[in-house]
Design a protein around this nucleic acid. Structure first.
Lengths: 99, 99
DNA sequence: TGAATATATAACGTATAGCGAATATATTGA
DNA sequence: TCAATATATTCGCTATACGTTATATATTCA
């Protein structure tokens, strides 16, 4: 899953979180982080290639939007593991009742 | 989230998936992939440090188990984004009805 | 005890990631 | 048209990731 690699960098996770609030231009995103504009553009490229964001061209600006599909795929991947923590919770409960 | 970085490598995702079936020794895991035993041990270390697996010592063997907690944190992180794809689905439905 | 087994670590090479500075490419507006 | 603005790309650097081979550390068992 390329999505995990795209989210492996904390700045990129921050960008995704910022775009969850609302769409933003590159300049707006640059203001949020303590890295240069080229570095942000590179992060945006990685996110774009992973399908996590989309750029809407508006004159000389690019308005970046969140694309939830890859996150949804992670959600589906996690399905298999939900029973694991359900089991953990049950055994924790059993332990508490017993103690 | 360190978990994303731990899952950024396909071999490590494969190990997590294998351990979802059942706990396994290092040798068993090595058999599943086309990389050397030291490479697997390194991947296991990354997964261990991210809290995704736990090693139970059994003589000279280590039995690796899945630890679901970090995956559960991803699940909770995704919570915020669920409304995004719900919205997308609604607008898709609206589009279909209209068309 | 000593050979075999299971796993981890060390050492080293190469590829890739991430950064800033400089530069290229559009686009806007005076 | 030309300067300013917005963004992307290139370049060069350093750090880190991942792989293999070699080796270290336990542990088992004949």
């Amino acid at each position: 899953m390329e999505t995990f690699a795209a989210l492996a960098d904390p700045t990129r996770v921050g960008i995704v979180e910022a775009l969850a609030g609302r769409a933003r231009t590159v300049s707006e995103i640059v203001e949020l982080f303590d890295v240069s504009q080229p570095a942000i553009s590179r992060h945006l490229r990685v996110l774009r290639e992973a399908g996590l964001v989309r750029a809407q061209v508006d004159g000389r600006r690019r308005i970046y939007h969140l694309e939830p599909q890859p996150l949804r795929e992670i959600d589906r991947w996690l399905e298999r593991y939900r029973r694991f923590w359900a089991r953990k919770l049950r055994s924790l409960e059993a332990h508490l009742e017993e103690g």
